Simulated scan of single mutants.
Amino acid sequence: MKKTLFLCCMLFSVLIFAQEKSGAKQFWENLQKHCGKSFEGEVIEGTENDAFRNKKLVMHVRNCDENTIRIPFFVADDKSRTWVLTYENDRIQLKHDHRHEDGSEDKVTQYGGITSNSGSPTLQFFPADQQTCDLIPNAAANVWWITLDEKSFTYNLRRIGSDRLFTVKFDLTKTVATPSAPWGWKD
């Protein structure tokens, strides 16, 4: 009887602990499951003449460690963009690392934001941070968000107070060939 009661208490403790993980932590762990994999995407929302339409779009969850996930985002042969996610103090930060073909930083790089709360396991919001406001004054009203479920990853941008909306959706049910290193990286 004591053994059964002990096992029940242990199981209950495990269930309570699992439920105590924040949305940010669950989101982080779910994204890490895709490390090393590449996925093709498509523009769902955006202007008709944006630079991403009708091009092959690939994200590669290339580098994961305990607190940083780097996801290069390729637009056809353009390997200049990497989304850098950092997990710290139950918040996630999104930065955009832009590079030239020689690997040097673009003058417009390292913009993004940090979540204002722990979010949910499937959705994280990133309002523009002060560095972004200083670097790109028009982007002060930017909000980025990422949705993540078993089937898809979406990257979104909305400029509040404008019609600007951009969404690219990646199919997580089918991996694609891993591309070569993004600009500024080595294989």
Rank of each mutant, 00 (worst) to 15 (best):
S80I: 05
Q19M: 14
S118P: 09
K107V: 07
T154H: 00
F153C: 01
P121Y: 00
D129W: 05
G23A: 04
I136A: 11
H96R: 04
P72H: 09
D78W: 13
V168G: 04
F153K: 03
A51F: 11
N156Q: 10
I146C: 01
N30G: 10
A141D: 12
E42K: 15
K107Q: 13
E42A: 12
T154K: 15
S38V: 04
F125I: 01
L172S: 00
N63P: 02
F12A: 14
A24S: 14
T132D: 09
H34T: 00
T115N: 11
I136K: 12
K186L: 13
L7N: 05
L85I: 09
S152R: 09
C133R: 12
W185N: 04
K3E: 15
G119H: 00
R70V: 05
G103L: 10
S180W: 05
V75N: 06
H96V: 06
G184P: 01
L57H: 06
K21N: 10
F6G: 07
D78M: 10
G161K: 07
P179Q: 04
D50G: 09
R159H: 10
S38Q: 04
E105L: 15
S13M: 14
V108W: 12
T109G: 00
V176K: 01
T175H: 02
N30I: 01
W28F: 01
G184L: 06
E45P: 08
T122Y: 10
A139H: 07
N49L: 11
K169E: 10
F27T: 01
E48L: 14
K33V: 06
T82F: 04
F126T: 04
K151R: 14
E101R: 10
C35V: 05
K37V: 08
E20R: 15
W83F: 15
E20P: 05
Y87E: 02
R70F: 06
L123W: 00
N89P: 02
M1D: 15
S116D: 14
D77A: 11
L157F: 12
F12S: 14
A51L: 11
L172N: 06
D163S: 13
F125Q: 07
Y87D: 08
L11A: 13
V43C: 02
R99I: 04
C133Q: 14
G184Y: 07
A18P: 03
Q124K: 07
A139E: 09
Q131E: 15
A181L: 04
W183D: 05
V176P: 02
K151E: 15
P182Q: 00
